[in-house]
Computed example of a mutant assay.
Amino acid sequence: MKGLREGSWDQACALASQSFMPLHSQTVSLADAIDRYLSQDVLSLCDLPAFETSAMDGWAVSGDGPWKLIGEVATGKTSAEVLHYGQCLAIATGGVIPAGTTSVIPWESAVEKDGQVSGEIDLGANIRPAGMESKKDDVLAKAGTRVSPPMAGLFAAAGHDAINVIAQPRVAIFFLGDELIHSGIPVGGAIRDALGPQLPAVLRKMGCTISSFQFVKDDLSVLNSEIAKTLDSVDLVITTGGTADGPRDFVKPALKNLDAEMIIDCVKVRPGYHVLLARVSHKAREIAFLALPGNPQSALAALYSFGNPLIKSFLGASQDQLAEVEITTALTTPEGFSRLVPGTINAKEFTPTTYLGSAMLRGVAHAQGFALISPGVNQAGSTAHWIAFN
Results as ranks from 00 to 15, higher is better:
residue 32 D to P: 06
residue 100 G to Y: 13
residue 135 K to N: 07
residue 18 Q to K: 13
residue 98 P to Y: 08
residue 160 H to C: 05
residue 102 T to G: 04
residue 114 D to G: 15
residue 323 A to R: 15
residue 121 I to C: 11
residue 35 D to A: 15
residue 104 V to T: 02
residue 279 R to T: 09
residue 333 T to H: 07
residue 94 G to T: 12
residue 183 S to T: 07
residue 236 L to Q: 07
residue 237 V to I: 15
residue 175 F to W: 11
residue 26 Q to S: 10
residue 108 E to S: 08
residue 180 L to Q: 01
residue 332 T to H: 10
residue 136 K to V: 14
residue 1 M to Q: 15
residue 158 A to P: 06
residue 352 P to T: 06
residue 356 L to C: 06
residue 183 S to Y: 03
residue 53 T to R: 14
residue 241 G to Y: 01
residue 239 T to L: 01
residue 212 S to R: 15
residue 99 A to K: 15
residue 152 A to K: 10
residue 333 T to Q: 08
residue 367 A to K: 02
residue 58 G to Q: 10
residue 169 P to T: 04
residue 83 L to Q: 08
residue 364 V to Y: 03
residue 370 F to W: 12
residue 189 G to N: 08
residue 180 L to T: 07
residue 272 G to N: 04
residue 20 F to R: 07
residue 39 S to Y: 07
residue 62 S to W: 09
residue 171 V to D: 04
residue 365 A to R: 11
residue 201 A to M: 10
residue 318 S to Y: 11
residue 244 A to I: 03
residue 208 C to P: 02
residue 225 S to C: 05
residue 151 M to A: 08
residue 291 A to M: 00
residue 315 L to P: 04
residue 150 P to T: 08
residue 317 A to I: 03
residue 36 R to V: 00
residue 108 E to K: 15
residue 125 A to L: 01
residue 69 L to G: 00
residue 218 D to F: 02
residue 320 D to H: 11
residue 139 V to P: 01
residue 228 A to G: 13
residue 107 W to E: 12
residue 335 E to T: 10
residue 182 H to E: 01
residue 252 K to N: 04
residue 310 L to W: 01
residue 47 D to C: 12
residue 155 F to W: 06
residue 260 A to C: 10
residue 190 A to N: 13
residue 146 R to T: 09
residue 43 L to I: 09
residue 364 V to C: 08
residue 324 E to S: 15
residue 103 S to E: 10
residue 216 V to Y: 08
residue 56 M to D: 15
residue 100 G to H: 13
residue 142 K to I: 14
residue 292 L to A: 02
residue 150 P to A: 06
residue 4 L to N: 08
residue 141 A to H: 04
residue 56 M to W: 10
residue 235 D to M: 03
residue 136 K to H: 09
residue 380 A to K: 11
residue 13 C to Q: 14
residue 196 G to P: 00
residue 205 K to D: 12
residue 156 A to M: 09
residue 210 I to F: 05
residue 343 G to K: 03
residue 55 A to E: 15
residue 338 S to M: 05
residue 178 D to G: 09
residue 300 L to V: 00
residue 351 T to Q: 13
residue 369 G to N: 06
